[in-house]
Design a binder for these strands. Structure first.
Lengths: 128, 128
DNA sequence: CATTTCAGATTACACGTGTAATTTTTATTC
DNA sequence: GAATAAAAATTACACGTGTAATCTGAAATG
């Protein structure tokens, strides 16, 4: 397969989230952004950032005396990883039961339904 | 939010899976069923079963000298928990982006598409 | 240059999980 | 009843994660 899966913990994903919104950023900026949505200690955020570095989910390039951080793992890649994990773990790898579950148990607005229909049309057209 | 969320680990869910297929079962039957799909040690399976008891995800009723185990958490409840967790953690709680992601990035067979269409039809009919 | 100040690196520690082994309890068999 | 066997409960231990505190090295400051 193309991308090796990079496990991102829940807390780590909050840090990724700020980098997905804007990058590159200094650690100070990242800490500030994370703290605007949480009450995590600065040390905590820095630890998470370091773990993400260790996993190569973000990269750091020196900029004068600091580093600038940017995501290597993209949000779409991560969403794929997580979705696939749910699909396999919980729905036996079959998409239809998953979608059925969401359709039945999560409220879909008429707009959602219409949107889905368009997606299905597009898929069928693409499929020959 | 009727049911309190019960966190089930990945390994634990394999044990639940056999109970969702058939219940009640003795621990011996559970061990055998789990081992038919894995190479876990009997002790491992029993540990998982015990943790599930501790979480009240299964119940044990005495039957002579053994216990009979049955699930308290249903598969549908668990699927809801996990789906909701993905939705919130990864897709900001919005269903449409999740469905769009699956539609675009996970391969849907023609059969999946047909099935989904039927679901959408059913939803629209129900919606008045 | 000695000192203070930070950014970054290293260490900490409890809890859940994967993966059992050990111990205890209960029941069955000499 | 003593010994054994089977089931259940308790304990073990490493690794990831949440949540920091401490240490280190280099830069700015007096």
């Amino acid at each position: 397969m193309s991308h090796p899966t990079i496990p991102i913990s829940d807390a780590e994903s909050r840090v990724m989230d700020v980098l997905w919104q804007q990058a590159p950023l200094t650690s100070e900026q990242i800490v500030a952004a994370v703290q605007s949505n949480s009450d995590w200690h600065e040390k905590t955020v820095r630890t998470l950032l370091n773990r993400l570095l260790g996993k190569s989910a973000v990269e750091a390039t020196r900029d004068g005396r600091r580093y600038l951080y940017r995501p290597l793992l993209t949000r779409a890649q991560w969403q794929s990883q997580e979705s696939h994990s749910l699909l396999d773990r919980v729905f036996g790898g079959r998409v239809a039961p998953l979608l059925a579950h969401f359709s039945q148990h999560e409220k879909l607005s008429a707009k959602d339904v219409a949107e889905l229909r368009k997606l299905l049309d597009a898929i069928e057209r693409k499929e020959r």
